[in-house]
Computed example of a mutant assay.
Amino acid sequence: MRLISVALALLLLLIQYPLWLGKGGWLRVGELEKEVAAAQEKNEGLRQRNAKLASEVNDLKDGTGAVEERARFELSMIKQNEIYVQILGKDQAKPATADAKP
C-alpha cells in the first residue's frame, strides 16, 4: 500500500512539472504578461506621437499659420515691410556687421 501511495505521489509531481516549469507553464505566462504590458505601453506612446504628427501634417496642409510659423522660427524669414529685431543676452556675443572694420 505504501508503494502505491509513493508511486501516485510521484506521478502527481510528474504531472505538475509541465504546469509550473514547462514551456507553457505558469511562470512563463507571468513573464509573457509582463512583456505584453511593456509592449502595450510602448504602443500607446507611439500612438500619441503619431496623433501629434498627424495633427501637424493637417495644419501644414490646411492652414498657412503653421507654414508661416515654421518659416519664421526655423528659417528666420520675415514678411515684407517688417523689421526683425533680435535681443541678445549678456552672455551672448554681438553679431558681426558687414561694414565693421577690424
Rank of each mutant, 00 (worst) to 15 (best):
Q80V: 08
R72K: 14
G45P: 00
I15F: 10
M1E: 12
E33C: 01
M77T: 05
L46I: 14
L46H: 06
R49N: 05
I15N: 11
K90Q: 14
K23E: 15
K79Q: 13
L75E: 15
V57A: 08
L88I: 04
A37T: 06
R28S: 09
K42G: 00
V57F: 01
E74L: 03
Y84W: 09
E56Q: 11
K52Q: 10
L13S: 14
P102S: 12
G63V: 02
V67H: 05
K94T: 06
A66M: 05
Y17D: 09
E69V: 01
G65Y: 05
I15E: 09
T97Y: 07
K90Y: 07
I87M: 03
P18W: 04
L53G: 02
F73T: 10
D99A: 14
E82Y: 04
K23N: 12
G63H: 02
L53R: 09
V6N: 01
K94L: 08
K52T: 12
K90F: 06
A54M: 04
A98I: 15
I83L: 15
L88V: 03
Y84R: 11
E33V: 06
E69N: 02
L14S: 13
V67A: 12
T97F: 12
Q16P: 00
E69L: 02
L88Y: 13
G63M: 01
L27D: 08
L46G: 03
M1V: 05
A96D: 10
S55K: 11
L8V: 08
E82H: 03
L13R: 05
Q16S: 15
N81P: 00
K94F: 02
V36E: 10
